[in-house]
Design a protein around this nucleic acid. Structure first.
Lengths: 222, 222
DNA sequence: CATGACCTTAAGCCTGCCTTAAGCCTGCCC
DNA sequence: GGGCAGGCTTAAGGCAGGCTTAAGGTCATG
């Protein structure tokens, strides 16, 4: 999932980026309110991590104005001011969650997972389909009880498909979800990952829709 | 909004009840996992506030099992054990938010408001005509309940017709929709696709208007 | 530094959808 | 009814898009 990090402290921002990437997210880092707006305009993100104190304004004001415009992205707010009153105003400005600094990276990722599953319309931590269970917190799965290990990219692709079982995702959508602005692919990397996934899941689990994209095979597929 | 509070400490439970009521919620208080299950079975709640340590078991286990059963209520977890690791396991068990004790009442209500904002679903636009349903996200259709699969070009033609049911589309319009400016066809490709579509939909579904184009047959066509 | 896991790139093969083309059919006008 | 233009049907071949495999590159780890 693409996550927009808005944080002007370089050390913190880099740490967040690396940590989120390790946890299976696809983070993009910007340092100002203006850049954040621009990024939200051009790309689709699944969530935002927002610092309160930014060089060109308050993250809280940015959020309030975004909400005003109808942006309904899940937002996790970060702040050095860890006062109760501060947290409350953050939440009431439209944040979905609020963490005070210093924070634990693992907690950030756990809270992001909670936010993202909720925004997908799901409450259960694991997603299920046709005997396959995915556990985002461990980046692992189970197929009919047998444990499965996935690499980061594999897991990202599979989660994207599991978010909307049966729906077709074209390659652009998948790449959008896998790669941030820094990284890019100009090859058939996605196809290779699909191939490796099929080796683990069986060939019929992921269906190719020629000329369009991929999807999870419906229940009774040939 | 009805909120189920699961808290065995009488002081805390009463405090929460009063506080939530003042904030405009409608709280119900129970003190055990068993009572919580019973309450959820009989009544509809908009959210749940769940303590981790309960006399007849762990709130975390209760939550995990509820999620397993498909209960998708937003859940705010409370715990005296305010360790990071503890919060993470709570979130990954399916909690939407997590607060350590001691907590501030106003913050509880702020977080509940944030949670309840997020509980709504989305719908996917589908087109219907004469017993045929088209689902763009899956490139599939249903004719009187029977599932239908289409190729890319077939689906493009059918969608074009379904966009304006009953209207006549000439071949140029259809080709425009199928091919970019550069890409051209110099043959009867469209007619072939129409033919294949009729094989799937029945011969009367798509009507030929001689010398003009094609259209979906009106409701009671012979 | 060596090792291994993971990812990307590239090249060649394979498959199935789309186009093409040729012949037949049908409605329309004289 | 005859002729004709537009539409239908069928089958075959091409080709784009996808699959597979394997070689390097990068990064973290012992």
């Amino acid at each position: 999932m693409r996550v927009l990090i808005v944080e002007d402290d370089a050390t913190l921002g880099d740490g967040l980026s690396v940590g989120l990437r390790l946890a299976g997210f696809t983070p993009d880092l910007v340092t100002t309110c203006a850049d954040a707006r621009a990024a939200l305009d051009t790309d689709d993100f699944g969530a935002m991590v927002l610092d309160v104190m930014l060089p060109d304004g308050s993250g809280r004001d940015l959020l309030a104005s975004l909400r005003e415009q109808g942006v309904d992205l899940p937002v996790l707010m970060l702040s050095a001011l860890d006062q109760v009153r501060d947290r409350i105003t953050g939440l009431d400005a439209g944040a979905d969650d609020y963490l005070g600094k210093p924070f634990d990276l693992d907690e950030v990722t756990a809270r992001l997972r909670a936010l993202s599953r909720r925004s997908e319309g799901r409450a259960q931590p694991q997603s299920h389909w046709n005997g396959l269970t995915l556990d985002p917190s461990r980046m692992e799965g189970q197929l009919n009880g047998a444990p499965l290990r996935f690499s980061r990219r594999e897991f990202a692709i599979l989660s994207a498909l599991m978010d909307r079982p049966g729906a077709i995702l074209d390659r652009a959508a998948l790449e959008d979800r896998l790669y941030g602005w820094q990284e890019g692919v100009e090859s058939n990397a996605v196809e290779v990952h699909i191939h490796n996934l099929r080796a683990k899941l069986g060939t019929r689990f992921i269906q190719t829709v020629r000329g369009v994209g991929y999807r999870l095979a419906p229940e009774g597929a040939p």
